[in-house]
């Protein structure tokens, strides 16, 4: 009995040393990285690109129109490179808009769809897919291989970017969180989940390059609007409005910080 306990203790000690070494090397996630690599090599998100293209070209909605005349900033129907410049100022709305807000506008104005119904299904769940997720993934993927290049030429673009920077650092809610609480420092984790430091341009570029992303834990593709909604939820704040001012200002700030990132959409994330 004594021997057995001694043996057990030795095994436990060896294990804890192994863990200690793994932690000391700062790579507690190496096991997960293998799985992530496998996912990236056979990215399920490609299916969303295909479905998004079909939805984009199909005549749909009460006006029986496709989205082929939708203007993402490069002119009607021009998708190549459009995502690299978003969010940007649009003269037709007088506002700074992101990918999803432009899609929403076109679906309502050109296809005659109901705004409330689109917002209701903006995110997929296990029971139903989301057209918005597929469309956003398709449009963004038309900028694959190009570099993020958000500009702050228009005064509203600059104001929105600065507001995004302000909001990134703004702490609020019952847990006093701001984006910066988790994403403002080097080498940090929530439990074992690595957190990118979004004040570092390199890390920000690797984040920005891959959204929309296939999220393994959600079994679906999620857009930046969802990513911000999800962080906001974890921060114990009320449901962040779809294409709300806060979401677009934060996206302006983050995408601008990620300028130079080579877009490869959909990315693969946890």
């Amino acid at each position: 009995m004594q021997m057995t306990r001694g043996g057990m203790a030795a095994i436990l000690l060896a294990c804890s040393i192994a863990w200690g070494v793994a932690l000391a090397q700062g790579k507690p996630e190496d096991g997960l990285a293998v799985g992530r690599q496998m996912l990236a090599e056979d990215n399920p998100g490609e299916l969303w690109v295909l479905r998004g293209e079909t939805l984009f070209r199909e005549k749909r909605g009460p006006k029986n129109a496709s989205l082929e005349q939708c203007d993402f900033g490069m002119g009607p129907g021009k998708l190549e490179g459009a995502f690299t410049r978003l969010p940007r100022y649009f003269a037709d709305s007088g506002k700074v808009e992101d990918l999803e807000s432009r899609l929403l506008k076109c679906m309502v104005e050109q296809q005659g769809m109901d705004r409330g119904a689109i917002i209701q299904t903006r995110f997929s769940n296990l029971d139903r897919a989301s057209d918005m997720e597929a469309l956003a993934t398709y449009v963004a993927s038309r900028s694959n291989g190009m570099r993020m290049n958000v500009r702050l030429d228009h005064p509203l673009e600059r104001e929105t970017y600065k507001a995004g920077e302000y909001l990134f650092h703004r702490r609020t809610g019952p847990t006093d969180f701001g984006c910066v609480s988790c994403h403002g420092d080097e080498g940090k984790r929530i439990r074992l989940q690595d957190l990118p430091n979004m004040t570092d341009r390199k890390q920000m570029q690797s984040v920005i390059a891959g959204w929309p992303a296939y999220r393994g834990t959600h079994s679906t593709v999620r857009t930046m609007q969802h990513r911000l909604y999800d962080c906001n939820w974890q921060m114990r704040l009320p449901d962040l409005g779809f294409t709300s001012d806060v979401s677009i200002a934060l996206t302006s700030y983050l995408n601008y910080q990620g300028n130079g990132a080579a877009i490869q959409v959909p990315g693969v994330r946890r």
Partner: peptide, 14 residues
Amino acid sequence: TRDLGEKMVTASYP
């Protein structure tokens, strides 16, 4: 910037 940010917060939880 602060004023705009706060205005955005007020409008972003419809």
